[in-house]
Write a protein that binds this DNA or RNA. Structure first.
Lengths: 143, 143
DNA sequence: CGGGATCCCACCGGATACTG
DNA sequence: CAGTATCCGGTGGGATCCCG
């Protein structure tokens, strides 16, 4: 009967199991297994959120992703509503987390260019999923 | 020369274009096109963030996604660190946004079960990407 | 058990002014 | 241009108590 526990996979967790002929102990075991798996997923999600959480981070990353190299003012113009202070702070944090590069040019008025690092680029799939979902959501809301 | 604008796609935006033989006007046109595309992506991302932003929403959705139906206390136990007030608030907002179902049973101590709606389930891909990225990130951080 | 009400604080984030 | 500094209000979110 322990085989039923093995039957559990992440994929199966999205279906109801009301027709699952489990007795109490097996059900408990399944629940426990699920909880273990769930916590490890939650931890991973929490890790991700720790880096890209906040009102602006994802927008900044997405902008750099779509536009390539960007200067400070370009980014501020692109990300609607962000103030200089927040943008500055966000850029600093993203740089600390190795997600973006900061390159300073010694021109007459100093020029700074930001760009994604290779590691920052690995967030693209997450960003794409979010953008896609958002687009579908807007369609749905407007009936 | 306008053909070069047409050449632009999202995919191409991730490569440098330093070797792109564009004159100023074409480069400007490209930049403008990019900006337009970028803004529409940012708007979509903003829409998504509007629903799932915050410290707990994604964790709650992920928990329901992995565990299926859940009661209030189960969720609170699962999502590490969340208080009853926040959990309650988050659940209310998610319900208003049609992402979760709330089902009340008239037992002696009242029982409430939460579960994802079909629409809430469409967030799964976003969640999976985030979980996967977080797992890789943790691996990378630990060298 | 499943929350609502209240209190309270930290910090997010906006506005403005200033610097190099 | 690319920030930094300062001030300050709103609110995210924790703790605690309470209620059906």
């Amino acid at each position: 009967m322990q085989i039923s526990v093995i039957r559990f996979t992440f994929e199966s967790s999205f279906q109801n199991e009301t027709d699952f002929p489990a007795e109490t102990m097996t059900a408990k075991a399944i629940k426990h297994e699920k909880s273990i798996a769930c916590r490890s997923q939650l931890r991973a999600i929490h890790d991700t959120l720790e880096l890209i959480n906040g009102k602006w981070k994802i927008s900044v990353i997405a902008s750099l992703s779509f536009l390539g190299k960007c200067r400070f003012m370009e980014l501020q113009r692109e990300v609607d509503g962000v103030g200089a202070k927040m943008l500055s702070q966000v850029l600093k944090e993203l740089e600390e987390n190795q997600l973006i590069n900061r390159q300073v040019f010694d021109t007459k008025p100093v020029t700074v260019e930001y760009s994604l690092t290779d590691y920052g680029r690995t967030l693209q799939r997450v960003i794409n999923e979010m953008a896609e979902w958002g687009a579908n959501h807007r369609k749905k809301i407007l009936e």
